[in-house]
Design a protein around this nucleic acid. Structure first.
Lengths: 209, 209
DNA sequence: CGACTGTGAGTCAAGTTGTCTCATAAACTG
DNA sequence: CAGTTTATGAGACAACTTGACTCACAGTCG
């Protein structure tokens, strides 16, 4: 499943304006992914989008407003359809997230989201994408509790941090692929159901207690 | 323990050049923390450092070269002195890292490291700070194995991802403080020694099997 | 079909960038 | 200590970028 940019156009907007905004947002997203947030200037976006520079100024007064809308409209459809059993579903969703974090498209978005959140200072709130992911995981945990796969739902924000944080660290800082056994380990930590699998092999596995 | 910027001056450098570079690196670091990487331009750095614009150009031809050196010289002394017993040491170090990730200084550095690693594309390598942290954790795990606190050393990179990733996610994306029970949970996942502590309370805790 | 609206080329002033010159002072050398 | 070397920084300069504006034109609406 690929993520794509949704338009910001309100229902009554002139179609010419809708087309311009669509083209500008797509161009800005492209620049973000290829060259980072610093590449989002009115001049570069206009050139890339094939619109007039004045048109970009007319829709967004400042580059950071445009970047904010690019992030807002990005689609990050991870964890979108909760399913049972929980563990294989988590595995599949985390596998996909890890694979896409290894690509510039999602890594750039994640990093830009962090920088945007950081620049909010002490009043910073998580971005709606981050909140949405937490809510989707909460729905999945509720399903699992209902089905008896979990005794109680975990604190969802902390579970999200423990499931996704290692993937973000692994891909954006360690610049390495995410092995399945890391996925297994983070799932075990949140929804225990097997021994941690990423301890070094070969050899018999001992349980710590 | 605070982190500070170390100078890049080679032993035989003219002291005037050493002083200039020191001032420029400190100014650039300051700008990075307050306004993000986009604020690092020759003009703004010169003004903040109190040196001539030509001096900044003389030492660094491009802003991204300067940013690279700022990141290179930053000190991130986390996990620096391994100690036993392992779990309380991990807890203390992770507590400190979490507290500092909540501040702009370390959060800005972490995000800038990610963007720098991402811009390396397919040839990207982890930054030396990331590698250093993995090595320090490996030393701590080796100590724990020697002392019988761990049966085998875990895969250190994966352990680092599972220990630190949730903290990075929690602070930079969820914009929330890191509770001690998240620290306990990530430690349990890597160095088991107690029940996961962040499941929702109150009520009796059931072990999943 | 007339009125309205969005677009974009071009203009303009102001600011920024990158390079260069040269006087000055700090550091080095013998 | 004097002469030499070197780093600095103010300022000049050309080129570029930014932000705002005008206006002709074409698309959209009623």
């Amino acid at each position: 499943m690929s993520h794509k940019l949704g338009g910001m156009t309100s229902p009554a907007t002139d179609p010419r304006a809708a087309r311009s905004r669509e083209a500008i947002l797509a161009a800005a997203y492209d620049l973000l992914v290829r060259e980072g947030p610093g590449a989002i200037t009115h001049q570069q976006v206009a050139q890339q989008a094939g619109v007039g520079r004045a048109t970009v100024y007319r829709h967004w007064a400042a580059p950071e407003d445009l970047l904010r809308d690019v992030l807002y409209t990005a689609e990050l459809p991870f964890f979108a359809t909760p399913a049972l059993p929980l563990r294989p579903w988590l595995h599949a969703e985390l596998r996909q997230l890890a694979d896409e974090l290894a690509l510039p498209a999602v890594a750039s978005l994640a990093i830009a989201l962090m920088e945007q959140t950081r620049s909010g200072g002490a009043d910073a709130r998580p971005h709606r994408h981050v909140t949405a992911i937490t809510e989707r995981l909460a729905a999945a945990f509720a399903l699992a509790v209902d089905a008896g796969e979990l005794d109680t739902a975990p604190d969802t924000e902390l579970a999200a941090a423990q499931l996704i944080g290692p993937l973000v660290y692994r891909t954006t800082l360690q610049a390495a692929p995410v092995p399945d056994r890391l996925l297994a380990a983070v799932i075990d930590a949140v929804a225990p159901g097997g021994n941690p699998a990423w301890r070094q092999r070969p050899g018999p596995q001992h349980k710590q207690s």
